[in-house]
Design a protein around this nucleic acid. Sequence first.
DNA 1: CCCTGATTCGC
DNA 2: GCGAATCAGG
Length: 233
Amino acid sequence: MSWTEERIEKLTKMWEGGSTASQIAEELGGVSRNAVIGKAHRLGLKARPSPVKANEKVEAPAAPAAVKPPKLAVPPSEPRATAPRQAPPPFAAPVSPAPRAAAPAPEPRSAADGDAPKPAPTPRIVSVGPGGFLRQGPGDQQAPIPPAPPRRLVPARPSPEIAEKTSLLDLNDRICRWPMGHPGEPDFHFCGDKVNPGFPYCVDHCGRAFQAQLPRGHRRPPPPMPFGGPRVR
DNA sequence: CCCTGATTCGC
DNA sequence: GCGAATCAGG
């Protein structure tokens, strides 16, 4: 199989539509999952959430942030870098016991500089470590942050905009479970209409979920499905 | 084990 | 350019 115009277009659409490489490969036919991924990369379509790519900085959007998670004053013993195999971190800072790299007066002294008369009043931060945490001198240790006081946990109340809508817990085999919106969003819910008997969806959504099997050549592309559609295997 | 995408490397 | 083999996280 070769990468014709149409196949590349389909690959691009599905890839950007969130389909997995396996689904795309199966849909295209004649190619493997690896071929799809390789082609996608060669097309420059990269940058989709990958399981192997450590999630960098993804703040939880719905977090009320009642207590801001304080940065650890003590750096983790093992600084987990997302191991760039060919580009070691640029800091080759020696882990010397008395780092004073950024001090305004790096005056060279004799070997016995135990006293270190510091005229610098405010800046105690001496260097920046991997991950952006601030290295501190031995005397700069802050008091350990006390754990948050225990609080009584109160069951979450559904937001008003979803209060009347069909939630996951409301699903049964008589109501349409077609998802409305996207999981994780505050108003995500399910259709909730009466199902088309024998199907998991209402009549309307059955029309979107299923279509008659037409002979090859007469197929029409299916309507876009939520989340790239159900896994068909 | 299964899945995922990323990367490498011989062709 | 292609894709199997391999890697590595979930």
